[in-house]
């Protein structure tokens, strides 16, 4: 394992221009898809199964994480037809707690690492952060790219870091957070996606959730198109994780529509698509209850965690 900087030689920085207005219009058109009745119920359940239920607070405690894990397993009391979420996402020090709480379930434990959320630490520290989380039992690592390096054009350094973190992950899956809210343009979102995928990302992820805007539909669409092109060229399926700012059930269904129409049904699985969220599941649950009972719901009837 090397911790020194080596220049990635295989980086292909071919320009893939993105037209912002065109992206907005495609997003708007995708949003006109009308999801009703059975399709809505099925879609919401599918989306719930893709949630990375997240708590990333300085105030997180074992108690809080255990509660979150309970919610991850039992999304809504009294409903047996609901899936479990795909994963819980926590800081590295909470990984062990989460693993214990989720024992015997298929729910994965994801840890943010690499000096999340800013990434403003030396590479060695980031790698150590990663190795620690993996050693604690994390199945998945959500790393952040060095936006400073990216924005000043040092793409080789960004790529190299990802490669090394990937190596440090061992068997754990790597999600690479681009923090698109700091990248400025959709062209840069596309470039960062390409770099991340070429450097070993299993997933690319929009945001830390600490910066606004986060997972806007425009950003998600651009990243999905990058994934599609990468698959076309390499035959390799990279996963996608929008995280941050996905406000409600409608937004979640819109994400599924996008995945379906840009990447195809093969990506409609938690192994290739995740939604990072903390409050979102309750809105989806309210919609599901509304479909079941025919009555519009209130948040008082759904547990927060």
């Amino acid at each position: 394992m090397s911790s020194s900087l080596t220049v990635s030689t295989n980086l292909n920085l071919q320009a893939h221009p993105v037209d912002e207005v065109g992206i907005r219009e495609r997003v708007a058109r995708l949003a006109t898809r009308s999801i009703k009745k059975a399709s809505k119920v099925e879609g919401l359940k599918l989306a719930l199964s893709m949630v990375d239920l997240t708590t990333l607070e300085g105030a997180d405690t074992p108690g809080k994480v255990r509660q979150l894990c309970t919610k991850a397993i039992h999304l809504h009391s009294g409903r047996k037809d609901l899936p479990m979420v795909a994963a819980v996402c926590v800081y590295p020090t909470m990984v062990r707690i989460a693993r214990e709480a989720l024992q015997g379930t298929p729910i994965q434990v994801a840890a943010v690492a690499t000096a999340f959320p800013s990434g403003m630490n030396p590479l060695a520290v980031k790698l150590e952060d990663t190795r620690y989380a993996v050693a604690e039992g994390a199945h998945e690592i959500d790393m952040v790219i060095s936006r400073g390096d990216f924005l000043r054009g040092d793409y080789a350094r960004v790529a190299n870091e990802i490669e090394q973190v990937k190596e440090a992950c061992g068997k754990a899956h790597l999600k690479v957070i681009l923090e698109t809210g700091e990248l400025g343009t959709l062209d840069r979102v596309r470039l960062a996606s390409d770099i991340a995928m070429q450097s070993g990302a299993d997933f690319i992820k929009t945001s830390t959730g600490k910066i606004q805007p986060a997972a806007t539909p425009e950003v998600v669409l651009v990243m999905l198109q990058a994934i599609s092109d990468f698959y076309r060229k390499t035959g390799k399926r990279i996963g996608m994780k929008p995280a941050g700012g996905i406000a409600n059930a409608k937004a979640a269904l819109n994400l599924l529509i996008m995945v379906r129409e840009v990447l195809g049904p093969a990506w409609l699985t938690p192994s290739l698509f995740r939604i990072g969220a903390s409050k979102l599941p309750n809105d989806m649950l309210m919609q599901l209850e509304k479909e079941r009972t025919g009555v519009y719901q209130g948040l008082d009837y759904f547990s927060n965690d």
Binding site: R33, S34, I35, K36, K37, A38, S39, K40, E42, G43, L46, S49, A86, P106, Q108, H139, L256, R260, G264, P265, A266, W267, L268, T269, P270, S271, L272
Partner: peptide, 14 residues
């Protein structure tokens, strides 16, 4: 752990 489904869904629009 590969308990998570890797099969794509045929979810569509009613």
């Amino acid at each position: 752990e590969t308990n998570i489904s890797t099969k794509g869904s045929d979810w569509g629009y009613a």
